[in-house]
Amino acid sequence: MMTLSILENLQRENLNPIEEARSLNLLTQKIGMTHDEIGKSLGKSRSYVSNTIRILALPKEILDLVEDGKLSLAHARTLLAEKDTKKQLLLAKRIINEKMSVRELEYIIYPPSSRKKVKDKNIFVSEIEEKLKKELGNQVKIKTNKNYEGSMTLHFDSIASLEDLISRLSKKTH
């Protein structure tokens, strides 16, 4: 009954992004649904569900700005890349005061000097990272040496996200 109530609430068009994220998170935390199951129930992708829930990791002040419509969901998602809470808050204020675009924010968080490293990476490895990111809905980093020996890192932001990732990877190997 609770599941149906939450799913019906999510299909209302007037939910703000934070209400939606909280409802999605409730389905994972209280009911135990996976991100994939939620996505299928709502006609959304698993990565959409995961990325929406990730927003809740931001400080309350930023969530309030998104909820009040002063900060866009795209800005909030971009702010997740900045791990320092104080810097996130300062950037949020700058976004509002300077009417900063998401592209401008990305330029601050990912300055051109840090992008050069990505461009120097083998195009084949970059394509695999991007393909896995789209497939899994999680950040993927591959580090290799010249002999293509290396490691792969999969990012997750909660125990539910980790469990969902493990579940999906297990299904792909069986």
Rank of each mutant, 00 (worst) to 15 (best):
Thr3Tyr: 07
Gln29Cys: 00
Val140Trp: 10
Asn25Arg: 13
Asn122Gln: 09
Val49Asp: 04
Lys134Gln: 07
Lys141Asp: 13
Glu82Leu: 03
Asp68Gly: 02
Glu104Gln: 14
Asn147Gly: 05
Glu129Asp: 04
Glu67Ser: 15
Val140Pro: 00
Asn14Thr: 12
Asp64Thr: 15
Pro112Asn: 10
Ala21Ile: 06
Leu165Gln: 02
Asn16Thr: 01
Lys40Tyr: 12
Ile128Glu: 10
Leu56Arg: 08
Lys70Ser: 09
Glu13Gly: 11
Arg94Cys: 01
Ser47Pro: 02
Glu61His: 09
Lys143Cys: 00
Thr85Val: 15
Asp64Lys: 12
Asp164Thr: 05
Glu127Gly: 03
Gly39Pro: 05
Ser151Gln: 09
Leu10Thr: 04
Lys87Met: 14
Arg115Ala: 04
Met152Glu: 07
Glu130Met: 11
Leu42Lys: 05
Asn97Ala: 12
His174Asn: 11
Gln11Tyr: 07
Glu98Thr: 06
Lys93Thr: 13
Lys83Ala: 11
Ile6Tyr: 00
Arg103Val: 12
Val49Thr: 10
Tyr107Cys: 04
Ala76Gly: 05
Asn147Phe: 13
Leu7Phe: 01
Gly39Asp: 07
Ile142Met: 05
Asn122Thr: 05
Lys131Gly: 00
Asn9Gln: 13
Gly43Ile: 07
Leu136Ile: 14
Ala160Thr: 06
Ile96Asp: 01
Ile128Arg: 05
Val118Ile: 15
Lys172Cys: 03
Ile53Val: 14
Leu26Ser: 14
Pro111Glu: 07
Asp120Glu: 12
Ser50Thr: 09
Lys40Val: 12
Glu163Ala: 04
Gly150Asn: 13
Leu15His: 06
Ala92Leu: 09
Lys143Phe: 13
Ile6Asp: 01
Ser45Cys: 00
Ile6Trp: 01
Pro111Leu: 10
Gln139Arg: 08
Ser101Cys: 11
Asp120Ile: 08
Lys117Val: 14
Ile18His: 02
Leu15Val: 07
Pro59Cys: 09
Leu169Trp: 07
Ser126Ala: 10
Ser47Gln: 10
Gly32Ala: 08
Ser170Trp: 03
Leu136Glu: 03
Ser167Tyr: 08
Ser158Phe: 03
Ser126Leu: 14
Thr78Asp: 00
Lys141Phe: 11
Asn138Glu: 09
Leu154Asn: 02
Lys60Phe: 01
Lys143Asn: 14
Glu61Arg: 13
Thr52Glu: 10
Glu37Tyr: 06
Met100Asn: 04
Thr28Gln: 15
Glu8Trp: 06
Gly137Leu: 02
Glu19Asp: 15
Leu80His: 01
Ser158Arg: 06
Glu98Trp: 05
Ser167Glu: 13
Leu132Phe: 12
Ala92Asn: 06
Lys131Gln: 13
Thr78Val: 02
Leu56Gln: 03
Tyr110Ala: 04
Ile18Val: 15
Gln88Ser: 02
Ser101Lys: 06
Asn145Phe: 08
Leu80Asp: 03
Asn138Gly: 04
Lys60Val: 09
Glu127Gln: 12
Glu19His: 08
Glu37Met: 11
